[in-house]
C-alpha cells in the first residue's frame, strides 16, 4: 500500500515542513505523519486550510516508504528536500576542504 506525507514550505522562513500527527508542521522527517491513501484527501484539505491561514505555502503530497519507523520519501528530489543539500556548504565546506588537504579527518 502506498503511503504519503504532506509537505509544504513555511510561509515566514520558507523552510521545508511536513504535516505532523497533531495537525501542525515539523521540519523533521521523523516527526511527520505517515498518511494512508484513504486519509490523504482529508490531510490535504487540512494542508490547504493551513495555506489559506498563511502558515505554509502550497502543500502537496509525496509518496513515502517507512524504514526503521522513519519516513523515507520515494523520490530523490523529496529526500534531498527533506534532508538538505547533499554537499556541505559555507564554512563547513571550507573547513572540510582544508582538512582534506592537510590529511586530517
Amino acid at each position: 500500500m502506498a503511503l504519503f506525507l504532506v509537505t509544504a514550505n513555511r510561509l515566514s522562513d520558507g523552510l521545508v515542513v511536513f504535516l505532523d500527527p497533531s495537525g501542525g508542521w515539523t521540519t523533521a522527517l521523523a516527526g511527520a505523519r505517515v498518511i494512508a491513501p484513504d486519509e490523504l484527501a482529508a490531510a490535504l484539505a487540512h494542508g490547504k486550510a493551513q495555506h489559506d491561514a498563511r502558515i505554509v505555502v502550497e502543500p502537496y503530497e509525496i509518496e513515502t516508504t517507512v524504514e526503521a519507523g522513519v519516513p523515507v520519501p520515494v523520490r530523490l528530489r523529496e529526500r534531498i528536500r527533506a534532508a538538505g543539500p547533499t554537499v556541505p556548504y559555507g564554512e563547513a565546506e571550507f573547513e572540510a576542504r582544508v582538512a582534506a588537504q592537510s590529511g586530517t579527518p
Binding site: N9, L11, S12, D13, G14, L15, V16, H51, R54, V57, E58, R77, I80, R81, G84, P85
Partner: peptide, 28 residues
C-alpha cells in the same frame, strides 16, 4: 500584507519574483 493575509500566494508570487525572491527546494 502577505503575512497578514491581505495578499494570497497567487497575488504575492509575481510581486516577490519582481524583487528577486524565489521559493526554492529548501527555502526562499
Amino acid at each position: 500584507r502577505r503575512v497578514s493575509g491581505a495578499l494570497t500566494e497567487d497575488q504575492f508570487k509575481p510581486l516577490r519574483l519582481m524583487n528577486g525572491v524565489y521559493l526554492q527546494l529548501h527555502a526562499y
